[in-house]
Amino acid sequence: MLEDYKVINEKDTRSGFGEGIYELAKENKNVIALTADLSGSLKLNKLMDEMPEQYVQCGIAEANMMGVAAGMTIGGKIPFTTTFANFATSRVYDQIRQSIAYSGKNVKICASHAGLTLGEDGATHQVLEDIGMMKMLPGMRVVVPCDFNQTKLATKAMVSFEGPAYLRFGRPKWPNFTPEDQTFEIGKAQLMNEGTDATLIACGHMVWLSLEAARELAKENISVEVINMHTIKPIDEEAIITSIKKTNCVVTAEEHQMNGGLGESVAQVAQRNHPVAQEFVAVQDSFGESGKPLELLEKYGLSTSSIVAAVKKAISRK
């Protein structure tokens, strides 16, 4: 229920990753953290200090890092590559495609500073195409957790399966609102609020804003079902179908291009099973720019008020 989700504290999701991989490395000597000169940004410091033998510095050479990771799996290692989301995906797409995805290697591609909320560094670093690129690769899992606690659990869940995966998280301090002891399962969406008028499906930072939007809409007696779709691939089709059969309209919210994102995956499921009106809260075929995270979300139509408007529009189209 909406009132169950309160801000525990504000923490960056990348720090959730840092804690998660530290604990994983402690538990499993085959877990190896690789970085391309961004160990501090990816919060690897504690792991590096205590387990230097499980840390590999690759320098500013991401293409090589992806290949090194693929090769390490052949020796039974579980490599986690760490860098910014842009350099983790678009810069090295062919390396991921051939040496990791097509080769079926157990590499965990971990990406921070994704989306607009990277902020002041601007469009060169604000990758908004990564979910699309990664979900198109056969066999690639794509996971976008919503807050610090969930990112830590998602990181630890990376070793629960064999095969390549993309884990996307971010830079800014952000509301941390899911419980530490939550059940987290890759591929299993979280129903965060039950509602009857519209389904609102979000991932990453947009989940908190979607809960905020649902609270505002509740004041106007609009009942919104909120789903945290932390796994874009494989997507939880059952969760989508069950909800849209009840509400008959859907809004998706993501910090990503509309083309290729979460919304597109949800639309595919809806079209094949139960077509409904859908609105997309996403970046509309443009690059980002410098600014503060919340300013950027406002400018690019990803704020709480944008979500509220999208829900009303979706309902009006039923």
């Binding site: 190896i32 033998e53 590999v56 293409a63 090589n64 890092m65 992806m66 290949g67 090194v68 990771a69 693929a70 090769g71 390490m72 799996t73 052949i74 020796g75 039974g76 290692k77 490599p79 062919d94 390396q95 051939q98 040496s99």
Partner: peptide
């Protein structure tokens, strides 16, 4: 791409 893969494989052997 092969040399990078070989480097990872060689590093894993050392580990």
């Amino acid at each position: 791409q092969g040399l990078s893969v070989a480097c990872g494989s060689a590093m894993a052997k050392k580990m």
